[in-house]
Simulated scan of single mutants.
Amino acid sequence: MGALVRYGAATAWPLPRHVFVSTTVTAAIAFAVAGFLVAAGLTSALRVAVFGACASAASLSAWAVLTISQPPKLSIGFLIGTPAAAVAGLLCGLLAARMVAR
């Protein structure tokens, strides 16, 4: 399911800069949802399935391929921007779970 999200985003925005934006946004959202689910507790099959979809949507193998297959400036953007977006998304997900728990 996550791979389909990535494919759909890349198809909708095929230019290299669009692929960069869709990759970083996908990573941020996937990590935010995954962080929230882990912090809130993976207690149901649905939560585990959503977590798996997030993991496949934020695939680091796709990030690695995109990083090495782009022009130099965009490659550096992928190299730094995608992990930064993932960490930011994870922190947002963890913070959201903490706020919900209160």
Rank of each mutant, 00 (worst) to 15 (best):
M1Q: 03
M1S: 10
G2E: 03
G2N: 02
A3R: 08
L4C: 10
V5N: 01
V5Q: 01
V5C: 08
R6F: 13
Y7W: 13
Y7K: 12
G8L: 14
A10P: 07
T11E: 10
T11R: 14
T11Q: 12
A12N: 08
A12L: 15
A12Q: 11
A12K: 12
A12Y: 13
A12C: 09
W13E: 09
W13T: 12
P16M: 10
R17H: 14
H18M: 10
H18K: 04
H18F: 07
F20G: 10
F20D: 11
F20W: 13
T23L: 08
T23F: 03
T24A: 13
V25A: 10
A27P: 01
A27L: 03
A28N: 04
A28C: 12
I29P: 01
A30C: 11
A30H: 08
A30F: 11
F31D: 08
F31T: 15
F31W: 09
A32N: 08
A32I: 05
V33E: 11
A34I: 13
G35K: 11
G35F: 12
F36M: 04
L37C: 10
L37H: 12
V38D: 11
A39T: 15
A39M: 12
A39D: 13
A40G: 04
A40S: 15
G41V: 06
G41N: 07
L42P: 01
L42S: 03
A45I: 09
A45N: 12
A45C: 04
L46Q: 09
L46W: 13
R47A: 11
R47Q: 12
V48Y: 06
A49S: 04
V50R: 02
V50T: 01
F51N: 00
G52M: 06
A53T: 02
A53E: 01
A53H: 00
A53R: 00
A53K: 00
C54N: 00
A55D: 03
A55Y: 07
A55N: 08
A55I: 10
S56P: 06
A58Y: 01
S59V: 04
S59C: 09
S61M: 06
A62S: 14
W63C: 09
W63H: 14
A64G: 08
A64S: 13
A64H: 06
V65E: 10
V65W: 14
L66E: 15
L66K: 03
L66N: 10
T67F: 04
S69E: 13
Q70A: 15
P71Q: 11
P71S: 14
P71T: 14
P71M: 05
P72V: 09
K73M: 09
S75D: 11
S75E: 08
I76N: 03
I76L: 15
G77A: 15
G77R: 07
G77E: 07
I80D: 02
I80K: 02
I80Y: 02
T82N: 11
P83W: 06
A86N: 02
A88I: 14
G89L: 00
G89M: 01
G89T: 02
L90G: 08
L90W: 05
L91Y: 03
L94N: 11
L94G: 12
A96K: 01
A97E: 04
A97Y: 02
R98G: 09
M99D: 00
V100H: 02
V100S: 00
A101Y: 00
A101V: 00
R102M: 05
R102Y: 00
